[in-house]
């Protein structure tokens, strides 16, 4: 037993040290930084000056941060409902024994393989473009006026729609893995008892997917709070209020934007801490709401 302990320590130690250095140290430092006034993100501690909750007060009073949080909330809620609903729908359809299942699964997942930069460019230039974009061409074909999809009124929704398109496949795969874990005999028994497909979905699939749904909601929350690239692609040159999200605000705060040389790494750290807390809170809420340990199969 003693020998085994030694072995375990030998194997675990490198990973443990790596975890401490590469993960816990930056996290700890970021939390600490959020209570100090710091200009440069890598400034030595001798250049830090204690600021209490000043950085938090600053970001929560910042109009740009408030706008970015509002945008993030809309992405999380509206985008989450659409993405997870579509992902579940596709997962159920693809596990129902339809033909060409593998093709459809690959096709829906494909946007995840393509670079987000290429995807966003495709949406901006070939789908939403005023003159030669696919959507306006379709509208004009049926005699309707073209819409300014990337004007200030519609830009946020255009960005969210494009993002959902790329995200559905990822969550669909997770749902599929959950559905495939459910024993087929449960459905057979339900069919014999006279349950139709909808009843089977509501009474068997959904309850047994609680754990997977919890995972997906948590992943979606992480995905939403780290939303960055799509916002950058939809606001080229400089940040715009319609598409700003907290990580873009963080980036601009820490590194300065176009034509801006003021930086505030302390406030940037505070944004990072707030985002991490949001994810933790969502995770605990989901754990309370969706208990998956009451069912065994």
């Amino acid at each position: 037993m003693k020998k085994n302990k030694m072995l375990i320590i030998c194997f675990i130690l490198p990973c443990l040290i790596t975890l401490l250095i590469m993960y816990l140290y930056p996290v700890g430092r970021t939390v600490l930084m959020s209570f100090f006034s710091i200009e440069s993100v890598t400034a030595g501690m001798s250049d830090w000056s204690f600021n209490g909750f000043g950085n938090y007060a600053k970001i929560f009073n910042s109009p740009a941060f408030k706008t970015s949080m509002w945008n993030m909330l809309r992405i999380w809620l509206v985008g989450g409902v659409f993405t997870l609903s579509l992902a579940l729908l596709f997962a159920v359809i693809l596990t129902s024994g339809i033909r060409f299942k593998k093709f459809f699964r690959a096709a829906i997942y494909l946007p995840n393989v393509i670079s987000a930069v290429a995807l966003a460019t495709m949406w901006i230039q070939y789908v939403f473009n005023n003159d030669y974009g696919m959507l306006n061409k379709m509208l004009k074909m049926v005699g309707l006026e073209g819409v300014k999809w990337l004007g200030t009124d519609m830009k946020f929704w255009a960005m969210l729609f494009a993002f959902i398109f790329g995200a559905v496949g990822y969550y669909m795969l997770i749902f599929i893995s959950g559905i495939e874990r459910i024993p087929a005999d449960l459905y057979e028994a339900a069919t014999i008892d006279g349950a139709n497909k909808v009843q089977q979905f509501l009474k068997i699939t959904m309850p047994l997917l609680k754990g997977i749904t919890k995972t997906n909601v948590t992943f979606w929350s992480v995905h939403t709070t780290t939303f960055f690239l799509w916002s950058k692609m939809f606001s080229p040159v400089d940040t715009e209020a319609t598409t700003i999200v907290p990580v873009v605000y963080l980036y601009d705060t820490v590194f300065g934007g176009k034509g801006v040389t003021t930086r505030d790494a302390g406030a940037g750290a505070a944004v990072g801490v707030v985002l991490a807390l949001i994810i933790i809170v969502i995770y605990f809420i989901m754990n309370k709401l969706l208990k998956d340990d009451d069912l065994e199969f």
Binding site: P63, A64, D238, E240, T242, D252, G257, K258, G259, V260
Partner: peptide, 18 residues
């Protein structure tokens, strides 16, 4: 400078732009 002073308020520059 870039944007002729509008960017001096980094908290509101994105809203100015909109």
């Amino acid at each position: 400078s870039w944007n002729m002073g509008l960017n001096d308020n980094s908290d509101l520059k994105a809203s100015f732009k909109d």
